[in-house]
């Protein structure tokens, strides 16, 4: 029997263009699988293109199964599906990781730093010229950007004991500070409540 079946299968891809689409669970015992004598003169069927080959039908299920609608296990499936949106952070008593939520009082300041979609402060270090030039970039700024620049300069002058160069981009709303001050500026932003 096995040999007969194998010989049938051997012709299947030749004869039926769409037989590769048969599912694992099914066998197609339709007429198309049975090899017909390939007579050159009496060849009525035209298998020259994919579009002309007939569809697979008469599929019989080989294995028995049941379909369960609204299954209780669907909760486990939901847990595996990707998140549609980044979840909001619920207020907690403490955040052991050191992350600090934005405070209400920061809304009253004449300037504002918005959080990123990942609830982080948008202060980054840009390294150029093989890491020799370090520039700290503060993004997502609102309000009086020049006043913010003035305050940052004053704060860095007092903490770093030296003059610190900055660059204000009014149109793209960012400030660049020459040097690596990411942690210092993040602490300052947290203290302001951003």
């Amino acid at each position: 029997m096995a040999t007969v079946w194998r010989s049938r299968c051997a012709f299947a891809p030749l004869l039926v263009g769409k037989s590769v689409r048969i599912l694992n669970n099914t066998i197609d015992l339709g007429s198309k699988l049975i090899p017909k004598p390939l007579s050159v003169t009496l060849c009525a069927k035209d298998y020259s293109s994919y579009g002309k080959s007939p569809f697979v039908d008469k599929i019989t299920e080989r294995y028995d199964y049941e379909i369960i609608k609204n299954p209780p296990e669907w909760e486990y499936v939901k847990r595996l599906l990707p998140l549609d949106i980044i979840p909001k952070v619920t207020p907690k008593d403490n955040y052991p990781s050191g992350w600090i939520p934005p405070k209400e009082e920061a809304q009253n300041l004449p300037y504002f730093i918005r959080r990123t979609k990942h609830h982080e402060i948008p202060i980054y270090l840009n390294l150029t010229y093989r890491g020799t030039r370090k520039v700290t970039k503060i993004k997502k700024l609102d309000g009086d950007i020049w006043l913010l620049n003035h305050e940052i300069k004053k704060y860095l002058n007092s903490t770093q004991q030296r003059y610190v160069e900055t660059r204000v981009h009014e149109l793209a709303r960012f400030i660049e500070v020459k040097g690596d001050f990411v942690t210092v500026l993040k602490e300052w932003a947290y203290s302001k409540g951003f």
Partner: peptide
Amino acid sequence: IFFGLEPGWVINLKDECILKPKD
């Protein structure tokens, strides 16, 4: 592999149903 889902099951996301083998 997954919590709560057994090997052999087929998950249909479109119709929200699970196909369980009986054979």
